[in-house]
Design a protein around this nucleic acid. Structure first.
Lengths: 204, 204
DNA sequence: GTCTATAACCGGATAGAC
DNA sequence: GTCTATCCGGTTATAGAC
């Protein structure tokens, strides 16, 4: 009776466990045994459900990439106001990262350590670049913002949001060694700070 | 005679080879055989010179971290003008990354995949935080810039410089799929763009 | 110092009982 | 579907000749 709670979803348990371990340790650093332990099942079951380590990994990687692209696309409206865009983008993106702080690092690392394979997996995801470019250019033409290359704008926003989480251990070590709790507070301040920074930088 | 060119510096050859492989593949993804091949020597020699894979790795990791911190510290002057700081910092930092584009990813990844060990190694490096804070606060008091928390300012600069290189494969895929050579041009534009962006954002 | 050969170990994958 | 036991390839590390 109590067992029914988890009955039938061994597959889900495995996926959750795999996600947790892969994201923290990467493809090469992950041991199938550790996933099995985390999922409270036997190593052999992993192969029963997913055939191989790599097959299991691909599912996790694709899902992670999909989440990241989805949030970006949800914020893009061809005719949107750019100041609204900045606010919604930063808000949604930071909340995604806050809930999954290891994801960006995970993605970047797998792409650089296994370029061929990951590149192939990553090509299926797209962001709506034409709509994004259109939005920026329209706002420029309306003199709402100073001229800027759309690609720089997007990279700026992503870098400002993502970098503090990717480099968190070093930031903690450098700036907040004496009061580690302050790091959390600092990261929470980022939202207002980034919005302020980008709005001011873009003023026409 | 020709052999003397490399005689006596087997150790250096190994370090160069190890650096190249570790930085691209990470600690877990690196095989000692690959380092040996890259250095054109035998696998056993690696152990003769460095005892173990981990010992060899530590040397590479520490050197990488040291380079990164050194550049930052070289730009900090307690009484410096902040607009000068922005220019020299961005210039030096981008040229470091351009020459070693995989270093940031390498460092972040090792710290997250092996937190205990790497944290320990990273504590020996410091940036001159008091001088940096002093510089920012002085410039604020002189009304040269709008008030900003020094930590945010540093994280902004680093993120804007580093992120485009860390995410290069995705940027290429998303924005420049049709003309991959354009990525290089885009990255070269970053220097002027970041300087422009930060100066404008900080204006008093 | 540098090599070849091999030991010792680990981890992904499979066989086969239940 | 789930387990235990085991295989087998690959990888770090060492022994020992030169």
């Amino acid at each position: 009776m109590e067992k029914t709670i988890t009955k039938g979803n061994t597959e889900v348990q495995i996926l959750n466990a795999a996600r947790k371990v892969f994201i923290k340790k990467g493809l090469d650093g992950t041991r199938m045994q550790e996933i099995a332990d985390e999922a409270h099942i036997n190593k052999a079951l992993l192969h029963y459900y997913f055939r191989s380590k790599e097959k299991l990994f691909e599912q996790i990687f694709e899902k992670a990439l999909n989440d990241v692209f989805e949030v970006i696309n949800r914020c893009i409206y061809e005719d949107g106001d750019i100041y609204t865009f900045i606010e919604t983008f930063v808000t949604h993106y930071l909340s995604l990262i806050k809930e999954n702080p290891f994801i960006p690092n995970f993605i970047f690392n797998e792409i650089t350590t296994h370029p061929e394979r990951m590149k192939q997996l990553s090509t299926q995801f797209k962001i709506n670049v034409p709509a994004f470019r259109h939005m920026i250019e329209k706002n420029i033409n309306q003199k709402k913002i100073t001229p800027i290359r759309p690609e720089h704008f997007m990279v700026d926003l992503l870098g400002l949001c993502i970098f503090p989480y990717v480099s968190r251990p070093l930031i903690e070590e450098i700036f907040f060694k004496e009061q580690p709790a302050e790091t959390e507070h600092f990261l929470n301040e980022r939202k207002q700070h980034i919005i302020f920074l980008m709005k001011k930088a873009l003023q026409a």
